[in-house]
């Protein structure tokens, strides 16, 4: 049963997934109390659970942000005077409930945004292009998006390789000062840009050589269809979000 549901959800139309993500992120941006945000986060995590996405590693990655959050916590406490004072040093407020709540809001929001982005990642990038085509976006543009997505990992890999080559020629990244690090990054950039231009050029030539854009329409081997589950989910998420938003505005 669980597996079957997961398969159904993963095969959801990409447009339905976009709707879910838009709803979640709208709520995340709109709410500004930790309690409500926590509820949205729990819903996000439940959805991730249904999609069978392993989200534990995401949460684990966020530990790197903790120092930033602590700084935020103290700054918010010291300068926005609202809430009760928990810790004070003379006249300076070190920790206030207002500070705690805004820092936790930031954390929760980020978790929700990243978590819902992981829902998007359960569809193949190709499907999003098909979704764009269905939305009557010209296929030249849809194709450009597809190619950008397709080549992104290649370029990331290329940048990593260049960084390795630079280190092998005697630059110790752990030891160079910050100013010099920026210089190193300019070294990574120039081959990258030149490669991107070169690849784009070659690709354009080989695509035209194979008849791309000869005719205004193109045959797609896979056609997206919005089925009943997609409609159900779209309507459900939109209406819940709208109801929740109106309720909280009225109150």
């Amino acid at each position: 049963m669980g597996v079957k549901l997961a398969v159904k959800m993963i095969n959801l139309d990409p447009r339905a997934k976009i709707v879910i993500v838009l709803c979640l992120s709208t709520l995340a941006v709109f709410f500004n109390t930790p309690g409500l945000l926590l509820i949205v986060l729990i819903i996000t995590l439940l959805l991730l659970q249904i999609f069978q996405v392993k989200y534990i590693s995401l949460i684990y990655k966020f530990r790197r942000l903790l120092p930033v959050l602590f700084v935020l916590l103290f700054i918010q406490s010291a300068f926005t005077g609202h809430g009760q004072v928990l810790v004070a040093f003379g006249d300076v407020h070190i920790l206030t409930t207002g500070g705690v709540s805004s820092a936790s809001c930031v954390l929760l929001r980020m978790l929700i945004l990243f978590g819902s982005a992981m829902i998007i990642a359960t569809s193949n990038s190709r499907d999003y292009v098909l979704a764009l085509v269905e939305l009557k976006i010209p296929y030249e543009i849809a194709f450009m998006v597809l190619i950008a997505l397709r080549f992104l990992p290649v370029f990331v890999q290329e940048a990593k390789d260049t960084l390795i080559a630079i280190q092998l020629r005697g630059v110790d990244m752990q030891k160079v000062a910050w100013g010099k690090k920026i210089k190193v990054f300019t070294y990574i950039f120039s081959p990258l840009v030149s490669n991107v231009l070169l690849k784009a050029n070659q690709l354009a030539i080989s695509m035209e050589a194979r008849g791309f854009r000869l005719y205004p329409r193109r045959t797609y081997l896979r056609v997206l269809k919005y089925n009943s589950l997609d409609y159900l989910i779209t309507i459900l998420s939109l209406s819940i979000t709208l109801v929740v938003l109106t309720l909280s505005i009225i109150r």
Partner: peptide, 14 residues
């Protein structure tokens, strides 16, 4: 060892 350290001893041509 850091890559920079290894690079002093071993040269690599991709």
């Amino acid at each position: 060892m850091a890559l920079a350290q290894i690079g002093r001893l071993v040269g690599y041509v991709f």
